[in-house]
Design a protein around this nucleic acid. Structure first.
Lengths: 164, 164
DNA sequence: ATCAAATCATTCGTGTACTAACTATTAGGC
DNA sequence: GCCTAATAGTTAGTACACGAATGATTTGAT
């Protein structure tokens, strides 16, 4: 599986003899990222569906299980999402009875997102998910953690020097 | 921006002294994947916008620059996307004049997606994108390629043993 | 004390992305 | 040749995800 940076003989791309094809689909990190993200998240679907959660909603629950209540803006920062994305998502979580949306008495602009009893209880079920995913992937924990750390470095690199 | 450190006194996370918290947000590979995918793809936006392309449309163009024409089902397989996702996307690419959608005379069910002259010419502009992204990331090429290969292994692992 | 600037959440418009249901066409079994 | 299977693409419905614009509230500088 090791791929040489140059002189890949299996490439169907043009410019075979000359310069390496920088636009080859299988060479793009963004493509590998997009596919891996979609496909791995897809593995969660059958596990989350019984709980009535989508994967983005599951990530919100993870954040709230670490700390509750949280403001919408705090959740957005924690998850690297726009508040505009979270707003309708949180209404759906409220409709499912997982969270409560209430004003913060200290600041009438802010919305305090709080776990409900049902939301707190759902944590027990969720604890079975990470081991199930690891078993389904059939990869060693060290390799997956290395990959996660590499992704974290990539995230930090993309964050630095915003496109101001 | 700067991430809050561990040992948050207000944390509601249980098992502090005992077992490690498997549900910690920062431990999840799926979270790192989702954020890295969104943020890295976000770096492409200012580069692709002048070409009138979104990132998924850019991936379709990469596939077509390698081989054209392609059927919708072939594109879907190449990009790991559902035909239902590609169908409206290809209509937008056609509206932008990048591709032509024509029936295959051999099989009236199949749709042949072909690059237009404008679509072929756009490749020149696109060749500047990968180097610009690498410069923007400020990471070494070897590390990024290692990460891509790790992602490829993850994709393969998620593919094996479909959730039958 | 007051008003401009900053902050917070929401809404709107566009574009993915998936599952399920549907239509049209082709291929096979007889 | 005919009818069922399978295949190819589209449509409908739900749910993200982002940028831009909006409305409400708070902060800060005067």
């Amino acid at each position: 599986m090791s791929r040489s940076p140059r002189t890949d003989p299996t490439s169907a791309a043009p410019e075979i003899g000359g310069a390496p094809d920088l636009l080859a689909l299988d060479r793009q990190v963004c493509f590998a990222l997009a596919v891996a993200s979609r496909n791995v998240i897809g593995l969660y679907r059958p596990l989350l569906e019984p709980m009535g959660l989508t994967h983005p909603q599951y990530l919100v629950m993870l954040a709230l299980w670490e700390q509750s209540p949280l403001k919408v803006s705090e959740l957005a920062a924690r998850l690297s999402l726009e508040p505009a994305t979270l707003s309708p998502l949180l209404k759906r979580l409220e409709a499912n009875g997982m969270v409560a949306r209430g004003r913060d008495p200290r600041d009438d602009r802010a919305l305090a997102i709080t776990l409900t009893t049902k939301g707190r209880r759902a944590r027990r079920q969720a604890e079975r998910i990470p081991p199930a995913i690891m078993a389904r992937l059939g990869m060693g924990l060290p390799e997956v953690e290395d990959l996660r750390d590499g992704l974290t470095r990539l995230i930090d690199a993309a964050d630095r020097e915003g496109p101001a």
